[in-house]
Design a protein around this nucleic acid. Structure first.
Lengths: 155, 155
DNA sequence: ATACGTGCAAAGCGTTTGCATTTCT
DNA sequence: AGAAATGCAAACGCTTTGCACGTAT
């Protein structure tokens, strides 16, 4: 299993174009703020909270208000350009990766690591229609403890 | 794929005993509040937030303060008697089920449904040790839209 | 006896909202 | 022009904390 490499330049470009296309198609205003925020999420490549995005240098420089950060990130999610990461702690976290991938999650500190695991990428998906659900995609969450938390065990 | 049946009487008893055993073993005070809270989580059988647990009739009756609910639930998690559910919204949710199971998650309203899916129960787990992680267990999150949210689509 | 849990109230964050203003299409 | 997004500040809701007191071991 490998940690995913950061999103590279060409993927980033593609995602930005995808974003602009979506905006045009769905007649949604393409504001500079949203573009800056999308770039920030893609560049952070962690699973930032809205506040961490707000604190990113590029976002600070653009003087984007906190309220806009919260609202714009939700818009990007609705557009399907970014996703929300599921997380055991009580904070919303955004995920710049929308393709299939999986998460290593530290149950103690909440760290999330994106991983590629081909053996988990084509699981036989059970049929959820009987329960009224329409499944769009799935994520495998590998839960445990990261190195740092294991080292300071016993808290 | 089937929705999991509510936790039955005998399982509940077993879990309560397990809790008492853990307390004795690890020399942790076994308070009546914690017992009430554990029962409440097992009985709720949703994925309650701390506040929903606090609002449960049995908890109200016992007049357990909100602060204690928050602290005691965390203790139960540390004891491994209950778990935290990973969730895309910004609230901590507790899960009374600690055995292997999976989640149907509505990306819109955040509903979580516990499901049994034998075909997902014995996945070939990739080796995460190179990344410093020690994986304890995993959950497959089937993400999509629940019936209700699909019906009022287009928001 | 001692360490730990509880209750209360206040503080601390993360997040949302109302409203006037600005910006995009 | 019209619809929608932004910024600001205030409001809100979830969660944590300090402290005095109570309780389990």
């Amino acid at each position: 299993m490998k940690r995913l490499a950061p999103i590279n330049e060409s993927t980033r470009e593609r995602r930005l174009e995808e974003f602009e296309r979506q905006c045009r198609e769905r007649r949604i205003p393409l504001t500079p703020q949203r573009r800056v925020l999308l770039k920030a999420v893609l560049d952070l490549d962690s699973h930032p909270t809205a506040d961490q995005v707000h604190a990113a240098p590029s976002v600070r420089r653009a003087r984007i208000s906190r309220a806009t950060v919260y609202r714009a990130l939700e818009s990007l999610v609705r557009l399907g350009i970014i996703a929300k990461a599921c997380h055991p702690h009580g904070v919303v976290r955004y995920d710049g990766r929308v393709e299939q991938h999986h998460h290593l999650i530290c149950l103690r500190c909440g760290a999330v690591v994106d991983v590629a695991a081909p053996e988990l990428d084509a699981l036989p998906l059970p049929d959820a229609s009987a329960l009224g659900f329409e499944v769009e995609n799935y994520r495998v969450q590998l839960r445990g403890l990261c190195r740092r938390c294991r080292e300071k065990e016993g808290t």
